[in-house]
């Protein structure tokens, strides 16, 4: 492996020193400017690191295209999400991260203008197959949003809501799930004495953990987190991050984040998207330390986005 000195220890335009990874070995396509090509409407195949082939796969995304009316929001997205790990989606605002996440539990179906081509396969079954009941699919996914959205009811009822809609009446079972989920969301000790109080009486960070408790109450296979910390202060963010790390293993987590440090701290795999295209997908440490494309490198080092 030869080293191209111009990529080593350079400084950015604003004069701050950055430590740049050795790119020469990975710059397979020479000086192709992917971003320009994508902006001009071309679809570029993503760079997928080989490492994913050694993983146990829970979700396989296959040539996924999505349109809102006439505007295409996702272009030929293909990658695989490993089981029991944290996979983060990064990319500039509006690049389709949330849209991607909303495909996984088919909540996009509720938007009339959405049209989807391609496939998503969970545990070998297509989620778009004719026999798939979206209600059942959504119960197997837990979704958490940027802004905490607990219901205006008691903490207890918030957590057991997914069981309530399934018609579960058994007090013991509800109590059991409530405690297990709140413990799972690292909230039990803080709220165990006030389960009857409104979920809205909690602080923002506690509300978000309540939402995570609610999301794991029905014991889903995947957790879909859409910028779960961006409305929270640093202390609450740290707690949620710790929680996400503890939850991985039991759950396969797909998290959208704006925060590069968060993606690099939390996730095992990272997908970098740009204008509806997947640019690069691979193990997080590689994406952040020796990405194969210059565009990923520019983005993770904060040079654009």
């Amino acid at each position: 492996m030869s080293t191209d000195s111009k990529n080593m220890n350079t400084t950015t335009e604003n004069g701050l020193p950055t430590i740049l990874p050795d790119l020469s070995a990975h710059q397979t396509e020479g000086d192709v400017d992917r971003l320009r090509l994508i902006e001009n409407g071309q679809v570029i195949p993503a760079v997928i690191h080989e490492d994913i082939n050694d993983e146990d796969i829970i979700l396989e995304i296959n040539k996924l295209n999505l349109w809102y009316g006439n505007a295409q929001a996702l272009y030929d997205i293909t990658f695989e999400v490993p089981r029991g790990k944290v996979t983060s989606l990064i990319g500039p605002s509006g690049c389709g991260k949330s849209t991607m996440l909303r495909c996984v539990n088919r909540i996009n179906d509720l938007i009339d203008s959405v049209r989807i081509e391609g496939d998503m396969i969970i545990d070998g079954d297509s989620i778009f197959a004719p026999g798939v009941d979206v209600i059942e699919l959504r119960k197997r996914m837990g979704m958490v949003f940027q802004k905490p959205n607990p219901f205006p009811m008691s903490i207890y009822e918030n957590v057991v809501y997914p069981l309530r809609i399934d018609g579960v009446r058994d007090r013991a079972e509800l109590d059991e799930v409530c405690e297990r989920s709140l413990r799972g969301a690292a909230l039990w000790d803080e709220v165990k004495d006030r389960l009857r109080e409104s979920g809205l009486s909690l602080s923002g960070g506690q509300q978000q953990r309540l939402c995570i408790a609610r999301a794991i109450a029905s014991d889903p296979e995947m957790l879909l987190l859409d910028e779960p910390c961006s409305a929270l202060d640093p202390v609450a963010t740290a707690k949620i991050e710790e929680l996400i790390q503890n939850l991985s293993g039991d759950y396969s987590i797909l998290i959208v984040t704006h925060n590069m440090q968060q993606a690099s701290r939390l996730s095992d795999y990272t997908a970098f998207m740009y204008l509806g295209n997947l640019i690069e997908f691979g193990p997080t440490y590689k994406i952040f330390s020796k990405p194969e494309t210059k565009e990923t490198e520019d983005y993770v080092t904060g040079r654009f986005g």
């Binding site: 909540i107 209600i135 959504r138 979704m143 949003f145 809501y161 809609i165 609610r214």
Partner: peptide, 12 residues
Amino acid sequence: AFRVACWNMGAT
């Protein structure tokens, strides 16, 4: 947001 939360949990 309340409705969206419900739908995402698989409520009709």
